[in-house]
Design a protein around this nucleic acid. Structure first.
Lengths: 242, 242
DNA sequence: CGTTGGTTTGAAAGGACTCAAGAGGGGTGG
DNA sequence: CCACCCCTCTTGAGTCCTTTCAAACCAACG
């Protein structure tokens, strides 16, 4: 598994204009006002990174935290025996790498599952701003909380029961209804296996089986279609198949 | 599974003297000074609760957060299909029920695995104190961070690989070396199964098998002994058995 | 075209689950 | 104090699901 690392020169898109950010309402700076923004001096970089690229690795000193704007990122925790698990799937609007706020090392590795667009925020900004802005502090606490809840419910739902059920819950979680039909992105089978604690062949088989049951259709490398969200939901809750 | 709920009248031990708390260094109020303490007016209750008692349930409005002083507590997340998982094992010094700080409902249920001793802190205290004490804010952020890291590494280590290996990692995590021999507490097999996503019979078999291999000894309902931490550690990392 | 990385599919082996019976411990009432 | 009950834990045998090892397939790319 070769893994590129970011080359900032190529990825750099300019400094962010956070004030005008399109996902600002869901991002870290949601509650900041003009005055708060005026206090930001260090540069917040706006990066685009291609799929399957490492952003940071576990144990590395945490200097930045990140907001994901577009795409998907996996957070990989590696165990003492060398095995690894995906402990969180970062979705647009989510913060990650918050260990930077604690002045610690990253407790997991982060890498891209798709092409992504993200903001990289130096920890110094938060430290200095945090002293003066209770609003930011509140927002940070909130984000930590969301991360924890996300992590725990992810953990509980994606890792309990038969794989087909777990996979169904996963698909419901990442699915996007664009108009009439719902589409769910897929990732490398290997990665999906790391999320649900099964081998990649098992993911492949589960997808095939669910397609046979009519729960999903149009399996391709990177996505599937969901003919009926209702059916899939029912399936994920009961596992009662035909 | 019958479950008592706290009866405060019986459990109440008096209001806490946080300033003199023995676990204060690791608890929420670690960094508060005299002045900060003087601002605390609402009562922080000091409770003792017996084993297998519910403290709060998922979805309940979060009015308090808790610090565990003694014993073990499980945080139970229940899925939409009714299945449930233990998402975190709370150990002495840990905070839980922090959803109260976000003004939300509890995202999981909490109940005792052993007799416990804990402090119950009304959310109002944090809200009012938080406005004025950046130290407390920093401490809260830190605690959130610890909870997240704990949750993720728990998730990754206790849920990856063969059960015997998972069980070994679990034991290492809860073991206490008192002098020469190390002892690890056990819980109801059912609960242990919910932590590692296996049936309770499987836990029972895994314990028996590990005893046969000499990795653990003196299996009883509530604890085991670990003859050699080294061996167990080696086992948990490689899974190479005899 | 041939190579390469990723995905699918097959068959056999292994681990966990289910159902079921039995053993151990603690508490209660006779 | 003993008998009995209930709850929990252990153990057994067969089934089901996931893994393992292999081989074939597919699409992208040089």
């Amino acid at each position: 598994m070769t893994m590129k690392t970011i080359e900032i020169k190529n990825a750099w898109q300019g400094n962010s204009d956070c004030n005008a950010c399109t996902i600002r309402s869901s991002a870290l700076f949601a509650e900041l006002n003009e005055e708060d923004f005026s206090k930001i001096h260090s540069p917040i970089d706006d990066l685009r990174i291609e799929a399957n690229t490492g952003i940071y690795s576990q144990g590395e000193s945490a200097e930045y935290l990140f907001t994901l704007r577009e795409g998907f990122i996996k957070l990989l925790h590696l165990n003492s025996d060398g095995s690894e698990r995906i402990v969180r799937l970062v979705m647009p609007g989510d913060l990650f790498g918050m260990e930077a706020l604690l002045g610690e090392a990253y407790s997991h590795a982060a890498s891209t599952l798709s092409n992504v667009h993200l903001c990289r925020i130096p920890k110094a900004i938060i430290a200095s701003l945090g002293e003066e802005s209770p609003r930011l502090h509140r927002q940070i606490v909130k984000k930590w909380g969301e991360a924890l809840v996300q992590s725990e419910s992810w953990f509980s739902e994606i890792n309990t029961g038969r794989i087909e059920v777990r996979l169904a819950r996963f698909l419901l979680r990442v699915a996007k209804s664009s108009g009439d039909i719902a589409v769910a992105p897929l990732f490398k089978r290997e990665d999906m296996g790391l999320m649900m604690d099964v081998k990649f062949e098992t993911i492949s088989r589960a997808l095939a089986s669910m397609a046979e049951q009519g729960l999903i259709s149009n399996i391709s490398r990177l996505s599937i279609q969901i003919p009926s969200m209702e059916n899939l939901k029912k399936f994920s809750q009961a596992g009662l198949n035909a």
